[in-house]
């Protein structure tokens, strides 16, 4: 049957593109407010900046229902295990935005108490600079992540590929996870 017989408007595309479009259009962030940046994250979700434009206004209280973790603020040594546990509780696929310099590098608090960069604990997809980043910066980081999802692979990210310098290959492999054969990409990066 030819497509010209159909009456309604339609688009054609691969299933993969559709899935990626759906994923990036409704990223649900987990509320992981830690410090100053959390206030700016809340401001980004409120009226003036309105994250609802990107389908992300639902900040989920439970990590089980979220697929984006915005690490907003400094991560202390005491909080680090909690952060990792919350990250582990999120279901795949999941992404992490490191918001602010404290989360990204420890910032001005280069001391005994602060983890010098959250990428030592969880793989980070996008780093947002600033102390604190204003809501526009956060929105820019989110749009960057959208681009990344749109252009990225559909399948689970491969070991060692994401996260600045973090060796995911050393991570324990979840049971039942089969590494894709190297060189085979299911998506076509543009």
């Amino acid at each position: 049957m030819g497509l010209e017989d159909l009456n309604h408007n339609f688009l054609t595309g691969s299933l993969e593109e559709l899935v990626k479009w759906a994923r990036r259009s409704s990223l649900w962030p987990a509320t992981f407010g830690l410090a100053c940046c959390a206030i700016e994250m809340m401001a980004a979700g409120a009226a003036d900046f309105d994250l609802a434009r990107f389908g992300m206004e639902v900040f989920r209280g439970s990590p089980r229902q979220a697929d984006l973790m915005v690490v907003a603020g400094r991560v202390s040594q005491k909080m680090a295990p909690v952060l990792r546990q919350v990250y582990d509780q999120m279901v795949e696929p999941k992404w992490v935005i490191s918001m602010g310099v404290c989360a990204s590098t420890g910032g001005m608090f280069n001391n005994y108490a602060i983890v010098q960069g959250v990428d030592q604990i969880v793989p980070v997809d996008v780093y947002a600079p600033g102390c604190p980043p204003n809501p526009q910066t956060l929105i820019h980081a989110i749009l960057t992540l959208h681009e990344k999802i749109r252009l990225g692979e559909l399948t689970q990210r491969r070991p060692g590929e994401t996260g600045a310098g973090i060796d995911l290959a050393a991570e324990p492999v979840p049971p039942g996870w089969v590494a894709p054969p190297s060189g085979v990409r299911l998506g076509t990066p543009r």
Binding site: T105, G106, N110, A113, Q116, A164, G165
Partner: peptide, 11 residues
């Protein structure tokens, strides 16, 4: 000690 970690440039 303050516990300062020297800044590392990973890339």
């Amino acid at each position: 000690s303050v516990g300062r970690v020297p800044v590392q440039f990973k890339q």
